[in-house]
């Protein structure tokens, strides 16, 4: 047990001077950021700037070479960390959905709580059906991922993560592989989640969406956070030339 107990008024995710390299390639060069409970933060930046790597460090999908990442006060890159506990707390949704193709939508949502958390099946099923309804997929419970559109698959993926009852959700460019019409339905789902008070960390290229839902925006370039701030000031008064250039291209 840690001696200093985490309390909800402290940052729920806290990164300090995080360094990450793939071989000789240093991808994160000292990242520090704090996320408070219930906050929605968006990470934007050019391709290859290390956004995916950054959020994958938070649930220990990537290891780090230096610095510290704490989730609810618990050091993520501690060797004795209970990974099951961390990953139950931190849900993640991917760009490519990554649903399990041999399982129906309902089974996809139910599998991890039943098999990993060993929760009773009927209880999980009830929760899973509610979640599928919440992401507006009632009626699709017994469809296989191959029978669903991209947007529908992505919403199943969101429900699958939520079934673990996480405290924090990570979204890595979850609309990047979708066609414009289906982007909206996924964004609505995320927005509702944020409004319910879920702590969300999003990597996104949807600037309008970021401006609308983010409490705080971080701009990364070549492994460092160049600039950050609440959307109101970030989009209007970006000071760094790299941010200005990026925004001028994308807006």
């Amino acid at each position: 047990m840690n001696t200093t107990q985490w309390t909800p008024d402290q940052p729920i995710v806290s990164m300090r001077d995080v360094h990450k390299s793939f071989g000789n390639l240093e991808v994160l060069k000292g990242i520090s950021l704090d996320v408070r409970k219930g906050e929605v933060i968006c990470i934007i930046g050019p391709s290859g700037s290390g956004k995916s790597t950054l959020i994958r460090c938070i649930n220990a999908l990537n290891d780090i070479q230096g610095g510290s990442i704490k989730v609810e006060g618990q050091e993520v890159h501690d060797k004795n960390l209970d990974k099951l506990e961390l990953r139950q707390k931190v849900g993640m949704v991917f760009q490519q959905y990554n649903l399990f193709p041999h399982k129906t939508a309902l089974e996809n949502v139910m599998m991890a709580p039943v098999k990993v958390l060993k929760e009773p099946k009927d209880e999980v099923q009830e929760r899973a059906l509610k979640l599928l309804k919440k992401v507006r997929l009632d009626g699709k419970e017994h469809s296989y991922p191959g029978e669903l559109s991209g947007g529908q698959q992505q919403r199943v993926a969101i429900a699958r993560s939520l079934a673990m009852r996480p405290d924090i959700m990570l979204f890595d460019e979850v609309t990047a592989a979708l066609d414009p019409e289906t982007v909206k339905e996924v964004l609505i789902t995320i927005k509702e989640l944020a409004q319910e008070g879920m702590t969300c960390i999003l990597v996104t290229h949807e600037m309008g969406f970021a401006r609308e839902i983010a409490d705080h925006i971080y701009f990364t370039d070549r492994g460092v956070i160049v600039e950050h701030g609440p959307p109101s000031t970030f989009f209007k008064n970006a000071t760094d030339p790299r941010t200005q250039e990026f925004l001028s291209q994308i807006l």
Partner: peptide, 15 residues
Amino acid sequence: VPSGQWEAAESLAYT
């Protein structure tokens, strides 16, 4: 099997 399947399972706390 695409590596995304491993990652999705890992992020769902599967060993």
